[in-house]
Each structure stands twice: as C-alpha cells, then as structure tokens.
C-alpha cells in the first residue's frame, strides 16, 4: 500500500513537471509578449518593452526562468502576473473558491440526480421514468452548457423574473442564503448536460450488470428484488460510474469557463482566458497545475475507493 502511494505520488510529480514545462515552453513561443499588456497602448514602444523586460528579469534563459517559477511556487507566493501586475496568490485566493463552488455543486447535484434517475431507469426499464430519463439524457448530451445557460437566463430571469442574470455576490449579501439565488442558474447550466451523461451511463451499466450470471443466480435463489439491486447490481456498477464521474470533472472545469463568462461569475475562467491570450505563463501554469493536482488527487482517491469497494482490485498492481 505505502509503496503504491509512493509510486503514485512520484508519477504525479513527474506529470506535473511535464505539464508545467510543456505549458511554459508553449506560452514562451506564442510570439505574444506579456510585457506589451503591462505597458498598454499609451506607453508601448519597443525600447520601453525591452527596458521593462530587463527590469523584470525576463531576458534570463528559459530554464532559469522555469526554475525561478518553481522557486516562487514552493515559496508559496506564486509571483506576479507579468501582463497585469497583480499578485497571483491574491488573485487565486479571490477566484479559485468561486470556480470550485459552481463546479463542485454542479458535480454533486448532477451525481445525485443523474445516478438516481439512471438507477430508476434501469430498475423500471421501459417505464415512463425510463422514457423520460432517456429523453433528458439525449437532450443533455446534445445541448452545449453555454446554450443551456442562455436559455435558463431567458426563462428564469427575463420571462419569470425569478433569479438574477449574473454575478456571484449581490450588493449587501452577507450569508450564503443571500447569494444562493445567484448560484442556481450557473449550477443548473453546468449540471444538466452532465446529468444526461451520467443517467445514460448509469442505466446502461446497471442493465449490463443486471444481466450477469451471478445476478441471475442471486435472483434464482429467491433474494428479494430490491436486495439484489442494492447488494449486487448497485455495488458492482458503481465503479465504472465513479470513473466516468472523474473524467467529467475535467469537462466541468473546462465547461465552467464559458458558463462563468455568461453569468459574469468571478471564477478562474476569465483570469485564465485573459492570461492565455497574454501568454502570461506564470498565471496559466499555476491554474493548470491546480486543476491537474485536483484531477490527479481525485483519480487517486477513486482508485483507493474502488479498492475498498471491490476486493478484487488490488492497489499494488
């Protein structure tokens, strides 16, 4: 076990180094100079850019600057945005929770609903629940989340005037409940497409498992149907479902960029796209890294969880 964890950690570290270096090299070769953003249209001249570049130490060799970035990372202050001058650390503290808030909420909501309806669909196959579930799944699979977002705004903000169009913290909001209305639409826009996916996948996996020999055997032994489902079908279909869930997380974080734009949600989306266009590598690298670390951690936990759930899986393999 310890050996497995150590190996996993090592692999994660190697991945992180490769990812960060790849992004670093790519963004250093886009031909876009982040300095030009700092100087802006009023002050930019090639000479002024060269001077500032020298002052900020951007003329150092690639490797030196890469190592310097690691030094900033490890010291925990994360450095400054080259293009816009803000402290990356304070930017992160301000933006990251907002993104996690909608992606994780969407994740939880869609997991509960998606797996729930998926299960019911499988149990009551070809019933009205199944039919509706499959229809929602098909639509959820075909309608992009940003389009959903637009429709939701049109419906709930403009027509029904129930929920705010955008923003995260309304003026004067103090408690979580004050800003709950702002959370509903973005989360719904992210969660519905994902729900569809999960529903479909849960249903199909459960039906697969339900047709396996050992389940049939359990049934033939006269075990009540609900017990068969809980004990055998559900348990055994959860592992692939959880794996799919994990892969959805990357889609969620990606999808949230467009949804954040539509709802003016103050998450990392805007900072990230802004930083990428500016080739502001230190910012992009940090945010990407945060996401990669999150993903690798989740994937690690999923494996661990799978091993606990299923005695057939052994971790040291």
């Amino acid at each position: 076990m310890a050996k497995y964890v150590a190996k996993r950690l090592l692999l994660t570290l190697v991945m992180i180094i490769i990812i960060s270096f790849a992004i670093f090299v790519a963004l250093n070769n886009t031909g876009v100079d982040p300095i030009s953003f700092k100087l802006g249209l009023d002050n930019y001249t090639p000479e002024a850019a060269a001077e500032l570049r020298e002052k900020l130490g951007l003329n150092a060799p690639l490797v030196v600057r890469y190592l310097r970035w690691w030094k900033d990372m490890l010291s925990g202050n994360f450095g400054y945005s080259i293009a816009h001058g803000y402290s990356i650390r304070s930017g992160l503290i301000a933006k990251w929770p907002a993104t996690l808030e909608i992606s994780l909420t969407a994740m939880i909501v869609s997991t509960v609903i998606g797996i729930g309806i998926g299960m019911l669909s499988a149990i009551w196959q070809n019933s009205i629940v199944d039919y509706l579930g499959r229809m929602i799944a098909a639509i959820g699979n075909s309608v992009p989340e940003y389009f959903f977002a637009l429709i939701l705004i049109q419906l709930f903000s403009v027509r029904l005037q129930l929920l705010p169009t955008s923003g995260r913290v309304p003026a004067g909001a103090v408690t979580f409940w004050d800003r709950l209305p702002n959370l509903i639409l973005p989360v719904a826009a992210l969660a519905i497409p994902m729900c569809g996916n999960l529903m479909r996948y849960t249903r199909n996996t459960m039906l697969d498992v339900a047709n396996q020999e050992y389940v049939k055997l359990a049934r033939s032994k006269g075990i009540p149907e609900w017990k068969v489902y809980i004990k055998h079908v559900f348990r055994n279909s959860m592992r692939p479902v959880v794996t799919v869930l994990l892969f959805r997380m990357t889609l969620l974080l990606g999808g949230s960029v467009a949804v954040e734009t539509i709802f003016s949600w103050p998450g990392v989306g805007q900072v990230l796209t802004q930083a990428i266009t500016a080739s502001d590598y230190s910012v992009v690298m940090l945010y990407t890294l945060m996401m990669a670390v999150l993903m690798l951690t989740i994937s690690f936990l999923v494996d661990l969880f799978a091993a606990l759930l299923d005695p057939r899986v052994r971790l040291d393999k």
């Binding site: 790519a26 886009t30 796209t273 992009v284 996401m291």
Partner: peptide
C-alpha cells in the same frame, strides 16, 4: 494519453491555439 486526460481539454486547446 493520461497526460491529456488529467486536465481540462479546454486549457490544452487554448494553449495550443495561443501557440
């Protein structure tokens, strides 16, 4: 392929696009 799977595709696409 795992490398590509472990962070949002959008970011890879954007970085390559910038490149």
């Amino acid at each position: 392929s795992e490398l590509f799977a472990c962070f949002p595709q959008l970011i890879i696409v954007l970085v390559v696009m910038a490149f």
